[in-house]
């Protein structure tokens, strides 16, 4: 679901950035005022979770791959505002360090994965939770929420892709950016997510939520202690398991590079040309492009990328928590 650069026209990128910005600003304000200080490290851990979960690619019908996001999980654990911040940070680090998702398309990716998923997921989860009394019912609600939310995000991404042939064409009518119309992009994005990725997201969400609830109740319920150790253990486990994400061969739909799209097969036929906007567009060389290290076996590169990404996310949030402490500290309050 990570839209690379040059798939969306500059106008779409700007509109999507404008759409995502208010959500991010409101989230940052809410988190700064409402989230207790001891829960701020959880934001980093949450972002690290999301980062890792997105590394687990699963093969989907049509020969491409898809991945879970963990947005509903974070929204259920930390609230939708904190989840929005966590996931957008994970997306930023993915774009800057690993070239996963574009720089120009960051707004669109943030809107799809960091705004739509947490808020839709959280709304459905609360809706179900308030109406059921059993634990099993709550978990069912969580699974439904995760499933619906990731599909809503996939639909948004598909619409953004599908609008491009209408918005940007050259004189001969050849699309400049994403060449697939809505009739292709919506089924191409939704079928894999409805069939596989949504189920994977739901399974991940419920399994990890149940684990966190059991080992670190303070994360879920106010008043109990927030234990970080089990969460770090879970993170380490996911890091070690991350090379499993390599088992699925192929690139996710809509994430082909400019060199791949010409040969990408869709509905039985290859595209046969590289849209002009893609061939000449922005090319940002991320240091660890595609989670690979030059000269290293894929597994090693993937695992190293997982460690570096997780560490970077956690460090970023620990530094952010520091800013909050400074702002609310007694020295300023007295002055």
């Amino acid at each position: 679901m990570h839209i690379p650069d040059n798939y969306l026209g500059p106008a779409t990128c700007a509109v999507m950035a404008l759409a995502a910005a208010p959500a991010l600003i409101v989230s940052a304000k809410k988190v700064a005022h409402r989230l207790p200080k001891e829960k701020i490290p959880l934001l980093g851990i949450g972002a690290a979770f999301s980062f890792l979960i997105m590394m687990f690619n699963v093969p989907v019908p049509g020969g491409t791959t898809a991945h879970a996001v963990g947005g509903t999980l974070l929204a259920a654990l930390l609230g939708p505002y904190a989840a929005c911040l966590s996931i957008s940070t994970a997306l930023l680090i993915q774009a800057l360090m690993f070239g996963d998702g574009g720089i120009l398309a960051f707004g669109a990716n943030t809107f799809n994965m960091a705004v739509v998923i947490p808020f839709v997921g959280y709304f459905i989860y609360r809706f179900v939770k308030d109406r059921v009394s059993s634990k099993r019912g709550e978990y069912a609600g969580l699974a439904i929420a995760a499933y619906v939310a990731i599909n809503a995000a996939a639909l948004c991404a598909a619409i953004e892709f599908g609008l491009q042939p209408l918005l940007a064409k050259d004189a001969a009518g050849v699309p400049l950016y994403c060449p697939y119309p809505l009739a292709v992009s919506i089924p191409a994005m939704l079928i894999p997510h409805l069939a596989v990725a949504g189920l994977v997201e739901a399974a991940f969400t419920v399994a990890i939520f149940a684990f966190v609830e059991r080992t670190s109740p303070g994360t879920v319920y106010a008043g109990s202690s927030v234990k970080l150790k089990p969460l770090y253990v879970l993170l380490a486990g996911l890091v070690l398991a991350s090379p499993l994400g390599l088992l699925a061969a192929g690139t996710a739909w809509g994430e082909w590079g400019a060199d791949e799209i010409k040969a990408a097969v869709n509905g039985g036929s290859a595209l046969g040309f590289t849209p002009a906007g893609m061939a000449q567009g922005l090319r940002f060389d991320a240091p660890l492009r595609d989670y690979a290290v030059k000269g290293a076996p894929e597994i090693v590169g993937y695992a190293l990328s997982a460690i570096i990404g997780v560490a970077a996310v956690i460090i970023a949030f620990k530094l952010l928590a520091l800013l909050k402490k400074d702002r609310g500290g007694p020295s300023r309050a007295e002055a």
Binding site: L288, V293, K294, A296, V300, I308, A312, K318, L319
Partner: peptide, 25 residues
């Protein structure tokens, strides 16, 4: 070797993220 350097970076960042925010800063 760039691979070794990246491995060392992963180790050091992994260790660094275990510290408190003040120490990291």
């Amino acid at each position: 070797n760039s691979l070794f350097i990246e491995a060392a970076a992963a180790v050091e960042l992994g260790l660094l993220c275990l510290f408190r925010g003040e120490v990291i800063a």
